[in-house]
Protein backbone atom coordinates (compact mmCIF):
# COMPACT_ATOMS: atom_id res chain seq x y z
CA UNK A 1 0.00 0.00 0.00
CA UNK A 2 2.66 2.45 1.02
CA UNK A 3 5.32 1.07 -1.26
CA UNK A 4 4.08 2.50 -4.52
CA UNK A 5 3.67 5.82 -2.77
CA UNK A 6 7.26 5.81 -1.50
CA UNK A 7 8.52 4.72 -4.88
CA UNK A 8 6.52 7.55 -6.39
CA UNK A 9 8.12 10.08 -4.08
CA UNK A 10 11.58 8.68 -4.75
CA UNK A 11 10.97 8.84 -8.49
CA UNK A 12 9.69 12.38 -8.17
CA UNK A 13 12.78 13.40 -6.21
CA UNK A 14 15.03 11.67 -8.66
CA UNK A 15 13.50 13.28 -11.73
CA UNK A 16 13.16 16.78 -10.34
CA UNK A 17 16.36 16.60 -8.40
CA UNK A 18 18.15 15.61 -11.60
CA UNK A 19 16.43 18.39 -13.49
CA UNK A 20 17.33 20.88 -10.80
CA UNK A 21 20.94 19.70 -10.82
CA UNK A 22 21.02 19.98 -14.58
CA UNK A 23 19.62 23.50 -14.58
CA UNK A 24 22.05 24.55 -11.86
CA UNK A 25 25.02 23.17 -13.71
CA UNK A 26 23.98 23.81 -17.26
CA UNK A 27 27.11 24.87 -19.05
CA UNK A 28 27.83 28.25 -20.71
CA UNK A 29 24.31 29.61 -20.73
CA UNK A 30 24.67 31.25 -17.36
CA UNK A 31 26.24 34.65 -17.52
CA UNK A 32 29.36 33.60 -15.64
CA UNK A 33 31.13 30.43 -16.45
CA UNK A 34 32.21 28.22 -13.53
CA UNK A 35 35.82 29.31 -14.03
CA UNK A 36 34.93 32.92 -13.53
CA UNK A 37 32.83 32.16 -10.50
CA UNK A 38 35.86 30.60 -8.90
CA UNK A 39 38.16 33.41 -9.94
CA UNK A 40 36.05 36.33 -8.94
CA UNK A 41 36.91 38.45 -6.08
CA UNK A 42 36.37 41.45 -8.46
CA UNK A 43 33.47 40.28 -10.60
CA UNK A 44 33.23 43.52 -12.58
CA UNK A 45 36.64 43.10 -14.16
CA UNK A 46 36.33 39.51 -15.19
CA UNK A 47 33.12 39.87 -17.15
CA UNK A 48 33.72 38.44 -20.53
CA UNK A 49 31.98 41.14 -22.49
CA UNK A 50 33.16 44.50 -23.65
CA UNK A 51 31.18 47.50 -24.67
CA UNK A 52 31.58 48.60 -28.26
CA UNK A 53 29.95 51.17 -30.49
CA UNK A 54 28.34 49.93 -33.66
CA UNK A 55 27.55 52.58 -36.23
CA UNK A 56 24.13 52.13 -37.80
CA UNK A 57 22.12 54.26 -40.20
CA UNK A 58 19.18 56.54 -39.66
CA UNK A 59 16.11 56.59 -41.91
CA UNK A 60 16.25 59.11 -44.72
CA UNK A 61 19.71 60.44 -44.04
CA UNK A 62 23.40 59.77 -44.21
CA UNK A 63 23.75 60.17 -40.45
CA UNK A 64 25.33 57.29 -38.59
CA UNK A 65 24.54 56.75 -34.95
CA UNK A 66 26.65 54.65 -32.61
CA UNK A 67 24.67 51.98 -30.80
CA UNK A 68 26.34 50.83 -27.60
CA UNK A 69 26.48 47.09 -27.38
CA UNK A 70 28.09 44.44 -25.28
CA UNK A 71 29.89 41.75 -27.20
CA UNK A 72 31.92 38.80 -25.94
CA UNK A 73 35.47 39.71 -25.06
CA UNK A 74 38.37 38.26 -27.04
CA UNK A 75 42.01 38.67 -26.25
CA UNK A 76 43.16 39.26 -29.82
CA UNK A 77 42.36 42.17 -32.08
CA UNK A 78 41.57 39.71 -34.84
CA UNK A 79 38.89 37.80 -32.95
CA UNK A 80 37.52 40.89 -31.27
CA UNK A 81 37.16 42.76 -34.54
CA UNK A 82 35.47 39.77 -36.13
CA UNK A 83 33.03 39.64 -33.24
CA UNK A 84 32.26 43.34 -33.70
CA UNK A 85 31.84 42.99 -37.46
CA UNK A 86 29.49 40.06 -37.04
CA UNK A 87 27.40 42.15 -34.64
CA UNK A 88 27.43 45.00 -37.15
CA UNK A 89 26.26 42.69 -39.94
CA UNK A 90 23.49 41.33 -37.69
CA UNK A 91 22.08 44.85 -37.50
CA UNK A 92 20.80 47.26 -34.85
CA UNK A 93 18.72 46.46 -31.78
CA UNK A 94 17.59 50.03 -31.34
CA UNK A 95 15.46 51.91 -33.85
CA UNK A 96 18.27 52.37 -36.34
CA UNK A 97 18.77 51.19 -39.90
CA UNK A 98 20.94 48.18 -40.75
CA UNK A 99 23.85 49.19 -42.92
CA UNK A 100 25.05 45.90 -44.37
CA UNK A 101 22.86 44.36 -47.09
CA UNK A 102 20.92 41.24 -46.14
CA UNK A 103 22.72 37.98 -46.67
CA UNK A 104 26.20 39.49 -46.48
CA UNK A 105 28.71 37.26 -44.74
CA UNK A 106 32.09 38.11 -43.29
CA UNK A 107 34.56 35.94 -45.17
CA UNK A 108 37.84 37.07 -43.73
CA UNK A 109 39.55 39.70 -41.67
CA UNK A 110 43.18 40.73 -41.35
CA UNK A 111 45.11 43.71 -40.08
CA UNK A 112 48.46 44.76 -41.43
CA UNK A 113 51.35 46.26 -39.52
CA UNK A 114 50.50 49.65 -40.97
CA UNK A 115 47.11 49.50 -39.26
CA UNK A 116 45.08 48.72 -42.33
CA UNK A 117 42.25 46.31 -41.70
CA UNK A 118 41.28 44.13 -44.63
CA UNK A 119 37.66 43.07 -44.38
CA UNK A 120 36.49 40.51 -46.87
CA UNK A 121 32.71 40.33 -47.40
CA UNK A 122 30.64 37.97 -49.50
CA UNK A 123 29.22 39.23 -52.78
CA UNK A 124 25.83 40.07 -51.25
CA UNK A 125 27.33 43.32 -49.99
CA UNK A 126 27.24 44.40 -53.64
CA UNK A 127 24.42 42.36 -55.17
CA UNK A 128 21.93 43.16 -52.40
CA UNK A 129 22.91 46.80 -52.10
CA UNK A 130 20.43 49.40 -53.29
CA UNK A 131 23.13 51.81 -54.44
CA UNK A 132 23.10 55.59 -54.24
CA UNK A 133 25.94 57.67 -52.92
CA UNK A 134 24.30 58.11 -49.55
CA UNK A 135 23.43 54.43 -49.29
CA UNK A 136 26.96 53.48 -50.22
CA UNK A 137 28.52 55.89 -47.77
CA UNK A 138 26.23 54.61 -45.03
CA UNK A 139 27.43 51.06 -45.59
CA UNK A 140 31.10 51.90 -45.98
CA UNK A 141 31.42 54.35 -43.12
CA UNK A 142 29.43 52.16 -40.76
CA UNK A 143 32.14 49.54 -41.29
CA UNK A 144 35.09 51.93 -41.30
CA UNK A 145 33.93 54.00 -38.35
CA UNK A 146 32.94 50.98 -36.29
CA UNK A 147 36.38 49.44 -36.74
CA UNK A 148 38.43 52.60 -36.31
CA UNK A 149 36.46 53.98 -33.36
CA UNK A 150 36.55 50.72 -31.41
CA UNK A 151 40.09 49.73 -32.35
CA UNK A 152 42.57 52.59 -32.30
CA UNK A 153 45.15 50.22 -33.81
CA UNK A 154 43.10 50.24 -36.99
CA UNK A 155 44.01 53.26 -39.04
CA UNK A 156 42.01 52.57 -42.14
CA UNK A 157 39.95 49.83 -43.72
CA UNK A 158 40.17 48.16 -47.08
CA UNK A 159 36.91 46.51 -48.04
CA UNK A 160 37.24 43.38 -50.17
CA UNK A 161 34.42 41.52 -51.85
CA UNK A 162 34.66 37.77 -52.46
CA UNK A 163 38.43 37.76 -51.87
CA UNK A 164 39.12 40.62 -54.25
CA UNK A 165 39.71 44.33 -54.15
CA UNK A 166 36.88 46.18 -55.84
CA UNK A 167 36.86 49.57 -57.45
CA UNK A 168 33.62 50.61 -55.79
CA UNK A 169 30.59 49.03 -54.15
CA UNK A 170 28.03 50.52 -56.51
CA UNK A 171 29.90 53.02 -58.64
CA UNK A 172 30.71 55.79 -56.20
CA UNK A 173 33.16 55.60 -53.35
CA UNK A 174 36.68 54.51 -54.15
CA UNK A 175 37.32 51.16 -52.51
CA UNK A 176 40.48 50.38 -54.42
CA UNK A 177 42.40 51.80 -51.50
CA UNK A 178 41.78 51.74 -47.76
CA UNK A 179 39.12 54.12 -46.47
CA UNK A 180 39.80 56.27 -43.45
CA UNK A 181 37.46 57.19 -40.64
CA UNK A 182 34.97 59.94 -41.38
CA UNK A 183 32.82 60.97 -38.47
CA UNK A 184 31.39 64.03 -40.19
CA UNK A 185 28.16 62.13 -40.70
CA UNK A 186 28.21 60.56 -37.26
CA UNK A 187 25.90 62.05 -34.69
CA UNK A 188 28.14 64.09 -32.50
CA UNK A 189 26.22 64.26 -29.24
CA UNK A 190 26.66 60.53 -28.79
CA UNK A 191 30.14 60.33 -30.11
CA UNK A 192 32.91 62.81 -29.42
CA UNK A 193 34.48 63.64 -32.73
CA UNK A 194 38.06 62.63 -33.18
CA UNK A 195 40.37 65.46 -34.14
CA UNK A 196 40.83 65.48 -37.88
CA UNK A 197 43.86 63.74 -39.20
CA UNK A 198 44.78 62.22 -35.86
CA UNK A 199 46.72 59.12 -36.61
Amino acid sequence: MNRPFIIGILLFLLVFGGLFYFIKHRPVETEHSPVETILKPEPQEIRRVIQVKLFFGTPGSAVLVPEKREVPFHDTLHSQAREVLIALIAGPKEKLVPTIPAGTKLLDFLTSKGGTAYVDFSGEIVSNHGGGTTGEMTTIYSIVNTLTVNFPQIHDVQILVDDRAVETLKGHMDLSRPVRQDLSQARKENEPQKPEGSL
Binding site: G57, T58, P59, G60, S61, A62, V97, P98, T99, G130, G131, G132, T133, T134, G135, T138, T139, H172
Partner: peptide, 16 residues
Protein backbone atom coordinates in the same frame (compact mmCIF):
# COMPACT_ATOMS: atom_id res chain seq x y z
CA UNK B 1 24.00 60.96 -60.35
CA UNK B 2 20.76 60.28 -58.52
CA UNK B 3 21.00 59.44 -54.85
CA UNK B 4 19.42 56.79 -52.64
CA UNK B 5 19.42 56.10 -48.94
CA UNK B 6 19.52 52.65 -47.42
CA UNK B 7 16.10 53.23 -45.90
CA UNK B 8 13.72 56.15 -45.50
CA UNK B 9 12.91 59.21 -47.54
CA UNK B 10 15.42 61.96 -48.06
CA UNK B 11 15.03 64.84 -50.46
CA UNK B 12 17.11 67.40 -52.27
CA UNK B 13 20.22 67.76 -54.36
CA UNK B 14 23.77 67.51 -53.12
CA UNK B 15 27.05 68.40 -54.76
CA UNK B 16 30.21 66.55 -53.91
Amino acid sequence: HANATVRGKARGAETY
